[in-house]
Lab assay of single mutants.
Amino acid sequence: GKMTGIVKWFNADKGFAFITPDDGSKDVFVHFSAIQNDGYKSLDEGQKVSFTIESGAKGPAAGNVTSL
């Protein structure tokens, strides 16, 4: 299901971020390909987002990341 959280930090050079979920679970890795914005895919620290949890090769990662 959809979860919500806050972007903890975003590394534009490497194209990934971490989200701190609102439910208090541990921070979730985000690859820029999961960001659903049109055009430039970036996130801002402190931004509120919704996302799903996908199981990636290196463990859980956020999918369908959308700005709220």
Score class of each variant (00 low, 15 high):
G1E: 11
G1Q: 10
G1D: 12
G1S: 11
G1V: 10
G1Y: 09
G1L: 08
K2W: 13
K2N: 11
K2V: 13
K2H: 11
K2G: 08
K2D: 08
M3C: 12
T4E: 06
T4D: 04
T4M: 05
T4A: 04
T4L: 05
T4I: 05
T4R: 03
T4C: 13
G5W: 01
G5D: 01
G5Q: 00
I6S: 05
I6C: 08
I6A: 03
I6K: 06
V7I: 14
V7M: 03
K8L: 11
K8P: 01
K8Q: 07
K8N: 07
W9F: 12
W9M: 05
W9V: 05
F10P: 02
F10L: 13
F10G: 02
F10W: 08
N11S: 10
N11W: 07
N11M: 07
A12G: 05
A12Q: 11
A12V: 12
D13P: 04
D13V: 08
D13I: 10
K14W: 12
K14E: 05
K14P: 01
K14S: 04
G15I: 02
G15S: 05
G15Y: 06
F16I: 15
F16C: 15
A17L: 10
A17G: 15
A17K: 00
A17P: 00
A17M: 08
A17V: 13
F18L: 11
F18R: 08
F18T: 05
I19E: 00
I19K: 00
I19W: 00
I19M: 01
I19D: 00
T20S: 10
T20L: 05
T20R: 10
T20F: 03
P21A: 03
P21V: 05
P21M: 04
D22E: 06
D22A: 06
D22T: 06
D22Y: 03
D22R: 01
D23V: 04
D23M: 02
D23N: 06
D23C: 07
D23H: 03
D23T: 04
G24T: 02
G24N: 05
G24Q: 04
G24F: 03
G24I: 01
G24P: 00
G24W: 03
G24L: 03
S25Y: 03
S25G: 13
S25P: 02
K26G: 08
K26V: 10
K26L: 06
K26N: 07
D27L: 05
D27Q: 05
D27C: 13
D27V: 06
D27N: 08
D27Y: 03
D27T: 07
D27S: 08
D27G: 06
V28G: 01
V28M: 10
V28S: 02
V28L: 11
V28R: 06
V28C: 13
V28E: 02
F29R: 08
F29C: 15
F29I: 15
F29V: 14
F29W: 11
V30S: 00
V30K: 01
V30M: 10
V30D: 00
V30C: 09
V30Q: 00
V30W: 15
V30N: 00
H31C: 15
H31D: 14
H31V: 10
H31S: 14
H31A: 14
F32K: 05
F32W: 10
F32L: 12
F32H: 07
F32Y: 13
S33P: 04
S33K: 06
S33G: 11
S33D: 12
S33T: 06
A34R: 05
A34S: 13
A34I: 07
A34C: 15
A34T: 10
A34F: 14
I35V: 07
I35H: 03
I35P: 02
I35W: 15
I35R: 00
I35Y: 04
I35K: 02
I35T: 03
Q36V: 11
Q36R: 07
N37H: 09
N37K: 07
N37E: 09
N37R: 05
N37P: 12
N37I: 10
D38H: 10
D38G: 09
G39K: 06
G39I: 08
G39C: 14
G39W: 07
Y40Q: 11
Y40H: 10
Y40E: 13
Y40I: 10
Y40T: 09
K41S: 12
K41M: 11
K41P: 11
K41Y: 10
K41W: 12
S42W: 13
S42R: 12
S42D: 11
S42Y: 13
S42L: 12
L43M: 06
L43C: 10
L43E: 01
L43W: 10
L43P: 04
L43S: 01
D44E: 11
D44G: 12
D44C: 15
D44R: 13
D44Q: 13
D44P: 06
E45M: 09
E45D: 05
E45C: 15
E45L: 14
E45K: 12
E45A: 13
E45S: 09
G46C: 09
G46M: 03
G46A: 02
Q47L: 08
Q47E: 07
Q47G: 05
Q47N: 05
Q47P: 01
K48M: 09
K48P: 09
K48V: 08
K48F: 09
K48G: 04
V49S: 00
V49Y: 02
V49L: 02
V49T: 01
V49A: 01
V49K: 00
S50E: 09
S50Q: 10
S50G: 04
S50M: 10
F51P: 00
F51W: 13
F51M: 02
F51A: 01
F51Q: 00
F51C: 04
F51T: 00
T52F: 09
T52V: 11
T52M: 12
T52P: 04
T52H: 07
T52A: 09
T52W: 13
I53N: 07
I53Q: 08
I53G: 05
I53E: 04
E54G: 04
E54N: 02
S55Q: 10
S55H: 11
S55L: 07
S55T: 07
S55E: 14
G56E: 15
G56M: 07
G56P: 14
G56L: 07
G56Q: 09
G56V: 11
A57K: 10
A57M: 14
A57V: 14
A57T: 14
K58D: 15
K58G: 15
G59R: 10
G59Q: 13
G59S: 06
G59H: 11
G59T: 06
P60E: 10
P60K: 02
P60F: 02
P60Y: 02
P60D: 14
A61E: 15
A61R: 03
A61I: 14
A61V: 14
A61F: 13
A61K: 03
A62E: 13
A62V: 11
A62S: 11
G63W: 01
G63R: 00
G63Q: 11
G63I: 13
G63H: 11
G63T: 12
N64W: 07
N64E: 13
N64K: 05
N64Y: 05
V65L: 10
V65D: 14
V65M: 07
T66N: 14
T66M: 03
T66A: 07
T66Q: 11
T66W: 00
T66V: 13
S67K: 02
S67W: 04
S67A: 09
S67D: 14
S67T: 05
S67Y: 03
S67Q: 12
S67C: 15
L68P: 15
L68G: 15
L68K: 03
L68I: 15
